[in-house]
């Protein structure tokens, strides 16, 4: 993992030096579909840059992506290194959401379970008491099924929580919804316990 990160840093530095196209997308709220042209934007490289793009055939020289993968895989079975919890900084993002902001769901269901109501109730009251706060409800699924179909299932779950909150009196303007489907698991096993932890809506604010 460490050589991997170092390589990435090297790649990012090369991108800065040599002027590979690097793109930062706007995160402003948009209504409707508004194509925007962000092909040759400002230099990336500011902290928090999320996305770097590189022209095919002009990847930073001296970098062999294949060796890079092999380095990543050293000492691990194929496909496992990327999902080791200890080697999964991405988990920190999800893990940062405390248990009192996570709503769990049954398999193939978007129904609010009775044991989830106290959690939604508490967050809804917090939002009603702080109308300036905007929450993002992030829907997730387990890994079974097609990825895009799971995006739709995750949105159903997030919308269930949204409707419940609105019924409690939270302003719709305070709620945004996004579905990550199966793309951001918090548990990496292929067992029912892991699946159950991944079928969730995170209330982020």
């Amino acid at each position: 993992m460490q050589p991997f990160i170092r390589t990435l840093i090297a790649v990012a530095s090369l991108a800065l030096l040599f002027g590979c196209a690097a793109t930062g997308e706007s995160t402003e709220e948009q209504t409707g579909v508004q194509p925007d042209f962000t092909g040759q934007p400002e230099w990336a490289g500011q902290p928090g840059q999320e996305v770097y793009s590189y022209p095919y055939g002009q990847a930073p020289s001296g970098w062999d992506a294949y060796d890079f993968y092999d380095t990543t895989m050293a000492g691990a079975s194929p496909g496992i290194a990327a999902v080791q919890p200890g080697a999964q900084p991405g988990q920190a993002v999800a893990g940062a959401v405390s248990a009192d902001r996570v709503v769990y769901f049954d398999f193939d269901s978007a129904q609010i379970r009775a044991d989830s109501r106290p959690i939604i109730d508490a967050n809804a009251r917090a939002l009603m008491g702080n109308p300036q706060i905007i929450t993002q409800l992030e829907g997730h699924t387990d890994e079974r099924g097609s990825r895009e179909y799971n995006i739709a299932l995750g949105e159903r779950r997030a919308n269930s929580v949204r409707q419940y909150m609105i019924a409690m009196g939270v302003s719709p303007q305070q709620i945004r919804v996004v579905s990550y489907g199966e793309e951001r698991p918090v548990a990496f096993g292929r067992d029912e316990q892991s699946f159950a932890r991944n079928r969730r809506v995170e209330i982020v604010y």
Binding site: E25, V33, P35, G39, A152, E155
Partner: peptide, 13 residues
């Protein structure tokens, strides 16, 4: 070229 263009960023999916 590496150029990117966002063609849809509607609310939701």
């Amino acid at each position: 070229t590496g150029a990117r263009r966002t063609v849809s960023a509607a609310p939701g999916i």
